[in-house]
């Protein structure tokens, strides 16, 4: 069932549309307006339902080039997930450890992980760049970035 890719996507979209509609119907009413906050969302929800049904029956119009984008080697999927985790960790620790520490670690290890072998250059860039950004933002522009554990 639902072999065609478009059909699978349209089912996912349909689920999103229905969930959105359910929430739209739960919006509280506001007494003093002719067009309440729920009108437009409801319209959008039904529109998405309609469009996903259209997509279900639509002919596949992708070009060969577009289709080839989906042929990702398994190894690269692993790399993508790992980088995703790197970023997640970076964000999570950003405010706690501070901008300079997390960014330096992130740039160094992420570049290394992606295959950059010149450790000296990598280390220098990973250190200089965040420090430059940090000083520009906090000292010259008075826009604070997380200071974290460092004393400045």
């Amino acid at each position: 069932m639902f072999k065609a890719l478009n059909q699978r996507i349209s089912i996912i979209l349909l689920i999103i549309a229905v969930a959105y509609l359910v929430m739209a119907y739960q919006l509280p009413a506001y007494p003093y307006t002719p067009v309440d906050a729920d009108v437009v969302p409801k319209g959008l929800g039904y529109l998405l339902v309609f469009l996903s049904i259209c997509l279900f029956f639509a002919k596949d119009s992708e070009t060969e080039e577009q289709r080839s984008r989906r042929n990702i080697p398994l190894k690269d999927i692993g790399t993508l997930i790992a980088v995703f985790l790197f970023i997640l960790l970076y964000i999570t620790l950003l405010e706690f450890l501070g901008f300079i520490i997390t960014t330096t670690l992130f740039i160094y290890f992420c570049s290394w992980f992606l295959g950059y072998k010149k450790h000296l250059t990598n280390g220098v860039v990973a250190l200089i760049f965040p420090i430059f950004m940090y000083i520009t933002f906090t000292k010259f522009l008075q826009i604070s970035l997380p200071q974290g554990l460092l004393p400045f």
Binding site: L85, F86, L89, L97, L105, F109, W112, F113
Partner: peptide, 12 residues
Amino acid sequence: RWITLIGFLVII
């Protein structure tokens, strides 16, 4: 390169 990942985790 997976060692890198582990290294990153350990340091953090």
